[in-house]
């Protein structure tokens, strides 16, 4: 079982990295929304699915993958803004379970709608010609498109970090997640901030969707398993922690990849094993702050 070459193992770690990148994008959005609004967004997986389908539509309209890559996440972001404004906002101040139930119901509606609009069979998206083919990394040939996914994710995560740490809006977002009452008392309209954050989180899910499209295709149920694994990432990283989402996303990606390599039968449950272990040792996750859930 363990008679594997170093090259195969290196290739395996690299595939895990790409899996991790998709998890990172999804988990950051979930974590951002939860951290600020304490809304557990069950529709996040459906936003991921919408990203892939919007990408497909935009690719068809414009003929350019780059246009689709730029505008599909924006479209999902706008959709997220609308969802926050008209569906979630009326539930603020009520039981925290209410938004969870609402977004869960919304995810069912979106999956069914996708089946109605785009059909029950999935669609395929092709990567642009410039990213087709494979690159020789020395130890293995690796698909160019997957390297591109790594690069895009790094750029987006860094940009988001700069936005949160170095801009005024970012400052308000961080303050709002720490103490919303105080921020409101200082005259900031937090409702607009919440809407914005929900939009950004949704756009990140949409970006994950369009990035995953050329690797996995687009189909209505694509978000159903991803949302569960993304929640695992958020819990492992610590609810509300961005650094946690990044580290845990990469960790879970590698765990999935390496279990598939050494014990494929366990690849399904290994992530839950990691979650259980982390929760036993650090109940609020790797980088979570205690007390956020109370």
């Amino acid at each position: 079982m363990f008679d594997v070459s170093a090259a195969a193992l290196a290739a395996q770690l690299f595939t895990g990295l790409v899996l991790g990148m998709i998890f990172v994008l999804l988990a950051i959005g979930l974590s951002l929304i939860f951290g600020l609004m304490t809304v557990v967004n069950f529709a996040h997986g459906s936003f991921y699915m919408l990203g892939a389908y919007f990408g497909f539509v935009l690719l068809g309209l414009s003929g350019s993958f780059w246009v689709a890559l730029a505008f599909a996440p924006l479209a999902v972001g706008v959709f997220g803004l609308l969802v926050e404004r008209f569906l979630i906002r009326p539930l603020y101040g009520r039981n925290p379970d209410d938004p969870l139930l609402l977004t869960f119901g919304l995810s069912l509606v979106l999956v069914e709608s996708a089946r109605v609009i785009w059909g029950k069979i999935g669609l395929t998206l092709d990567p642009p010609a410039a990213l087709a083919g494979a690159v020789n990394l020395g130890f293995t040939w690796f698909p160019t498109y997957r390297l591109f996914v790594i690069a895009v994710t790094i750029v987006v995560v860094v940009a988001l970090w700069v936005f949160l740490k170095r801009t005024n809006v970012g400052l308000v977002i961080r303050a709002g997640s720490r103490d919303p009452l105080m921020v409101a008392a200082l005259g900031v309209d937090l409702r607009r901030i919440w809407m914005l954050v929900f939009g950004i989180g949704s756009a990140l899910a949409g970006l994950a969707g369009i990035l995953a499209g050329p690797m996995r295709g687009a189909y209505a149920e694509m978000g159903v398993t991803m949302i569960i694994e993304s929640f695992v990432v958020v819990v492992v990283g610590g609810m509300g922690s961005l650094l946690g989402a990044v580290v845990a996303g990469l960790l879970i990606g590698e765990v999935v990849s390496l279990t598939t390599f050494f014990a494929p039968k366990l690849s399904d449950i290994a992530v839950f094993g990691v979650m259980a272990l982390v929760l036993l040792l650090r109940p609020s996750g790797l980088f979570g702050e205690a007390g956020l859930m109370e």
Binding site: R216, T225, S257
Partner: peptide, 17 residues
């Protein structure tokens, strides 16, 4: 692999090897 899982990349290096 688990049915319905859309990600196969983690299986591939070992098979190629």
């Amino acid at each position: 692999y688990p049915l319905g899982n859309p990600e196969f990349s983690a299986h591939l290096p070992r098979i190629i090897d």
